[in-house]
Design a protein around this nucleic acid. Sequence first.
DNA 1: TTGGTAAATTGGTCAAACCAATATGTTGCG
DNA 2: CGCAACATATTGGTTTGACCAATTTACCAA
Lengths: 261, 261
Amino acid sequence: MLQNKLQVPRISDAVAASLERRILEGSLKPGDRLPPERELAVELGVSRPSLREAIQKLASKGMVQSRQGGGTYVTDRLESSFFDPWQEMMGAHPNLREDMLEFRRMLEGQAAEWAAERATDADMTRIDQTFLALNEAFVSDDLDNRSKADIAFHQAVGEASHNALLGHLTAALLRLMHDNIRLNLGELKTLPAAGVLLKNQHAAIHAAIRDRKPQAARAAAETHIDFVRETLAQSLRSAARRETAARRLNTEFSPSDSHTS
Amino acid sequence: MLQNKLQVPRISDAVAASLERRILEGSLKPGDRLPPERELAVELGVSRPSLREAIQKLASKGMVQSRQGGGTYVTDRLESSFFDPWQEMMGAHPNLREDMLEFRRMLEGQAAEWAAERATDADMTRIDQTFLALNEAFVSDDLDNRSKADIAFHQAVGEASHNALLGHLTAALLRLMHDNIRLNLGELKTLPAAGVLLKNQHAAIHAAIRDRKPQAARAAAETHIDFVRETLAQSLRSAARRETAARRLNTEFSPSDSHTS
DNA sequence: TTGGTAAATTGGTCAAACCAATATGTTGCG
DNA sequence: CGCAACATATTGGTTTGACCAATTTACCAA
């Protein structure tokens, strides 16, 4: 009924592909400036709006960046996050973060509950191992390792729930969130005392699963997420405060905005 | 020297973000058709070229798809990216179906609970509409319409939960399952009496949400899934029986087909 | 040399028009 | 009455031309 017919090729797509090819071939290197739109349009034999649509496509992929009056520059596409669709969503719509944490609360609570009910000996061993590794990683300051260990632990729990979707989704969401946090917030160093609390929470989850106490496991997992959620919110608030403070400092040179709070 | 300066906001970016938000919020659902560019441009108060640039951005992200003369339609890269791989899995490993139903039990239970708590008047209206449509569709024998109405109802509930992930996932899973069922099982005609039961279950969910009874809504949703799960299992068992019987008949003609390479 | 201002450059936006593919309604034939 | 063929309207695709705003560049004066 709908998009069954084959698509008519769009000029903007062809142009975008052409430019993309030039970038990938290396004839347009990162940092290079594209010819002015008017010139480039003539050179490519298309109208300026068509060229602009193509440029917007590339810009949305993060391959180029335009500045009014300045020009259009090729960016280093390795720096931009060209990952999951959700990844960009999270960046663009921070309110999704709250949705995701709420969702994770349900997900990990259920995973812990089922894991406590269903984990085999092999699952248990794996959970033990990842739990120990997590504790080790927490004493170091290597945030990358901490992330990996964290993901591994939760994934082990998720897989011990013996539900394929639950396992994959917990892992995927956790990975997504870690990437996103590291990306948007830089680090979580703002919470120095949180480490020991997190450790205790993980220990509670681990213990409840090992002792085959489903409800306790669910409660522990939910408490864990609640804590992460609250901590993250605080951290984001303080980051926002720092940013406004910095902005205030910058504008201090032009003394018109008095009445600071 | 280059992109340090802060960017001037582009209209096309704002428009793209606006449309993207509508899609994520669910007011523009996958398969929906956008208003014509000329209308939409007026509605948003921008020129058509600007709107087009925004649409191209979304198109390059795979969120919309345009056909000359046909219109612009919302795709859903989020759902497909999460579950395209799952589609094949389901075919290859039927035991995943059980996992999925178990997962859906949790998902839809939570969705119903939150919907009962959080649904706005608009959500309620939509749930009412889809519920009525579902009842109408059930009297007919058009299985495709029944599927669509079923999906629409559950999706309305999922979106009324006001959690983007939950909304998209319920819809995606339901769609996945319906495709899969229709694919693997042909039809569900094996359950003639199930119709009225399903109808009652949907009515229970609908009533609980309308009456703002979260726990009742969750229970009703879980009961619904339990019934579907049980019915489906029965239906599969009988199908398997038919198949073995048929196989037995077939092999009767050529006895001893064993070990040939 | 330094500083600022004017001009040129360049991306951003808009308007109007036309083309081409699609969708829709209508007519006429069987 | 049903259906196919055609005519019309709708809708995305493209172009032209113009103007605005931010940036860069050139130039001139102190």
